[in-house]
């Protein structure tokens, strides 16, 4: 089964995925209408700044077993049998934040959500764009990502490609790393900026 694979080394920190994600989890499903909605839809993928101010797209890993699911006081977190996606039932969630304590990646947020009960904050996180996938679309964050930091593919395929790249980079006549030139340039600028400001 295809899933979202994150390649953090390619992220340029443009945060387009956050916009696309929030739009995909709005009522209107259109960016310009979504910003007018109340409650305002929020992203479920979170681009943070890494140690060198490089972008880091952080989203739910849908762990198995899922620590949030085991810690959920209300029994609101469950795994979809057909897709393996870890989901939160908005009507059972009691907003106790036990899942914030459980999640080792810090990807769960707490707020009122357009797709949840009105007037109540609940725990919100990535649902693998289940609604879009059911309609034959791919997850919104992948669709929008221009840098190749988010792909939608079989995990085996992604692993094989990654293994090959690592193996190649270790051989004597190593190919240059498979990073687009622009991304590499941007990253080295950010790193040196930080070094200059630190010295």
């Amino acid at each position: 089964m295809k899933q979202v694979v994150v390649h953090p080394e390619r992220c340029v920190g443009c945060m387009q995925c956050m916009l696309a994600c929030a739009t995909a989890h709005s009522r209107s499903l259109m960016l310009f209408a979504a910003v007018q909605e109340t409650p305002q839809p929020k992203a479920r993928i979170h681009v943070g700044a890494g140690c060198f101010n490089e972008g880091f797209p952080n989203r739910c890993r849908h762990c198995d077993p899922a620590p949030c699911q085991m810690a959920c006081l209300a029994g609101a977190i469950y795994r979809s049998d057909s897709t393996g996606t870890v989901m939160i039932n908005p009507d059972r969630c009691i907003n106790c934040a036990s899942c914030a304590m459980a999640c080792p990646y810090g990807v769960i947020r707490f707020h009122e959500d357009p797709l949840g009960p009105a007037g109540h904050a609940i725990a919100v996180k990535c649902d693998n764009c289940s609604a879009r996938v059911a309609k034959g679309q791919i997850p919104a964050c992948v669709e929008i990502c221009k840098a190749g930091a988010l792909t939608y593919e079989e995990m085996d395929t992604a692993m094989r490609r990654k293994n090959r790249a690592v193996a190649r980079s270790m051989s004597t006549d190593a190919d240059p790393p498979v990073m687009p030139a622009g991304v590499a340039l941007l990253k080295s600028i950010k790193q040196s900026e930080l070094q200059l400001s630190g010295s």
Partner: peptide, 19 residues
């Protein structure tokens, strides 16, 4: 490995633990 102050700074996220 990070300075502990990083862990309590606003904007701390999992990505900072990767290097």
């Amino acid at each position: 490995r990070l300075p502990p102050e990083t862990l309590i700074a606003p904007g701390f996220n999992f990505g900072q633990l990767l290097y």
